[in-house]
Design a protein around this nucleic acid. Structure first.
Lengths: 147, 147
DNA sequence: ATAATTTATATCGCGCACGATTTAATCGCG
DNA sequence: CGCGATTAAATCGTGCGCGATATAAATTAT
C-alpha cells in the first residue's frame, strides 16, 4: 500500500543513466562543435579510427545501432568529406565505410577531447574505469534480457 | 605518438552511459507500450505522481530538461487525457501541470514496471543502489562543469 | 510610474533512435 | 538449378533533446 509512494526519480537507476548521458552530451557539445561533429558522429569516427573500412552493420554492432540510424548519419559524414561509402564488391548488400584523408586527420584535431571529458568527470581514473566496467556489464545484461 | 591508437570505444565512459541508456530504453519499451507512454513521458508521470500540480520549470529542473522539450511532450500527455495544463493565477508566465483521474490511476497500471526493470538489470539491490549513487554524483559533477 | 531587464513558456529546425516496411543481394535446400 | 528464406541497407514516420528565437508576464531600476 505504501509501495507506490516510494517511487522517486532518484531511486531509478535508469534515470541516473539517462540524465548522465545528457550531461555528457552537454560537455561534449562545445568540444565537438570545434571539429563539426555531433556526439553520435564522433562515436562512428572513433570506431573508424580504430579500424577503417567497416560495413554499416559492423559499425552498428559496436555502437548498438542499426542502419535506420546509421545510414543518414554516415551520409552526413560523407557530405562533410570525412568518409566514403561504397558497395562491397564481394557482397553487394553491404556498404563499406572508409575514412578520407580529411577524416583521418580529424583524429588529431579531436585528440584532446577525451582528456577534457575525463577532467570534467572530476573522478580519479581508477574509479572511472571501475564505473565504466560496471556499466558495460549492466548494458550487456540488459541487452541479454531484451528479446 | 602511440596515444591515438589507444582510443577505443570500450574505454569511453560516455559510451557505456550512452549505450546503457539505449539498453534501458529497449527494456522499458514493451513495458511502457502497455500503458501508452514513452520513456520520457513516463519520467514526467513519475515526477507528477510524486508531487502533483508542478510547473513546467519545476518538472524540468528535476529531469534536467527545458520547456523546448517538455512543452510538446506534456501536450501529448494532455491529448492522452493524463494531465491538464493551465496558467498559474498568481504568475501567468507559469503553466501548472496537474494529473487527471486517468493520470493518477495509471500509477497502478505501471506499478510493476520498476520491478521488471530491476530484474532485467541482473544485479543485487546493493550494487544497483551503489551504481545509482555513483552515477548521480558523476552527473552532478558534469552539470557543475558545464557552464 | 515607466523603462529596462529578467523569467517562464512556446515555437522552430535539425539530428538522432527506432519500429515498420521496402528493396536488393545472397544463401540454402530440395 | 531454381525458389523460398535470410540478410544488409535504405526509407519513412514519430518522438525526443536542444540551440536559437519569440512572446508575454513579472521584476527591478531609475
Amino acid at each position: 500500500m505504501a509501495d507506490k509512494l516510494k517511487l522517486t526519480l532518484d531511486q531509478l537507476l535508469c534515470f541516473s543513466v539517462y540524465s548522465t548521458g545528457h550531461a555528457f552530451n552537454r560537455i561534449y557539445k562545445p568540444l565537438l562543435d570545434k571539429v563539426g561533429l555531433t556526439y553520435p558522429q564522433y562515436l562512428v569516427m572513433v570506431v573508424l579510427w580504430q579500424e577503417d573500412r567497416q560495413t554499416v552493420r559492423g559499425i552498428g554492432s559496436k555502437l548498438f545501432l542499426e542502419s535506420n540510424t546509421l545510414t543518414p548519419l554516415i551520409k552526413r559524414l560523407e557530405t562533410a568529406g570525412l568518409v566514403t561509402r561504397e558497395r562491397d564488391r564481394d557482397d553487394e548488400r553491404q556498404v563499406r565505410v572508409a575514412l578520407t584523408n580529411q577524416g583521418r586527420s580529424l583524429q588529431d584535431q579531436a585528440a584532446d577531447v577525451p582528456g577534457c571529458v575525463v577532467e570534467a568527470c572530476g573522478m580519479n581514473l581508477d574509479d572511472l574505469v571501475d564505473l565504466n566496467r560496471k556499466l558495460a556489464r549492466l548494458r550487456n545484461a540488459l541487452e541479454q534480457s531484451a528479446p
